[in-house]
Design a protein around this nucleic acid. Structure first.
Lengths: 162, 162
DNA sequence: GTTGAAACAAAACATAA
DNA sequence: TTATGTTTTGTTTCAAC
């Protein structure tokens, strides 16, 4: 039996070219009006609205949101903090990670399998603040085995194409 | 002279409580109408619009966008790929990274200082695809020294509070 | 910085093709 | 899927506070 049995593949939502273009336009500006989207896509506004609703309802679009630039708010330094949890404290990881999410400055959290257990993406004012963040929130926690911090020189998004 | 001379700090945009709440509401749903935002904030629609425009114009809001769930589109596996560039090929990093950004499945790219040179956050269909991605786009490139791939078990966003 | 009112634009919905 | 008409809702501007 083949490992990738076609019949067992979960059915992914299929997008046509118009859906893809609609997603791309919304990724660039999620506040565009339906009429303006419809015009650029070359379809009727009613059709466009139906497609947009379908993308939202099917979960393809998980949310309409904004990107906030932390640097403009004084958090000019971004870092990735790689964290290893003590083998005996793995059961605490989930709670620990959730606590982390709510801390100001935490932008993302990745739960990993592999060398590190999770990665925090943080935005802080300066190197002094990142040091303080690690000391207060990570080193002080007995569940944490080690941390390693890398400065983020640049952070970019993918094209958003699928 | 102190290292952090107050007078030399770049002036960060200061937000009041209403701005912060407005950002939080827009982060949850960037398509909310101005009227609805104004009502929840307890201010007039015209005031709300003025604040929203100020946040956009000052760059605090860098864009209005959508979040697409890759799993719904069949890309059910996310991974972080840590990449080291050969010492002699560092000058190619910028171009290389930019090429990466446009590849389907690439969600984010971090340019790092530290042990690794950059990190790719990718969403693919399965482990076979992530292997193929690394072989085609990374291992095949003479600028790449090493790669290390970690599965993402969970990916979360911060609270978005500042 | 904030406001309300008026003029304008768009959305939402139903219906029919 | 599109077109059209109706009703409802939201946006934008601006004089005034």
């Amino acid at each position: 039996m083949p490992l990738n049995e076609p019949g067992r593949e979960s059915r992914a939502t299929q997008l046509d070219g118009i859906d893809r273009k609609l997603l791309a336009l919304l990724a660039k500006n999620s506040r565009r009006t339906n009429n303006s989207l419809a015009e650029e896509l070359g379809i009727a506004p009613s059709t466009c609205l139906a497609r947009l609703n379908a993308l939202r309802d099917s979960g393809v679009i998980s949310r309409f949101t904004i990107e906030v630039d932390p640097a403009v708010l004084g958090r000019e330094l971004e870092a990735l903090i790689f964290v290893k949890i003590r083998p005996g404290a793995r059961h605490l990881m989930s709670n620990f990670a959730n606590d982390m999410r709510s801390k100001p400055g935490v932008r993302q959290l990745f739960f990993l399998g592999g060398a590190d257990d999770f990665v925090l993406h943080v935005a802080v004012r300066n190197s002094s603040d990142v040091r303080q963040f690690v000391l207060d929130n990570l080193s002080a926690n007995p569940a944490v085995a080690t941390t390693q911090t890398s400065l983020v020189f640049e952070h970019g998004h993918g094209s958003g194409e699928f």
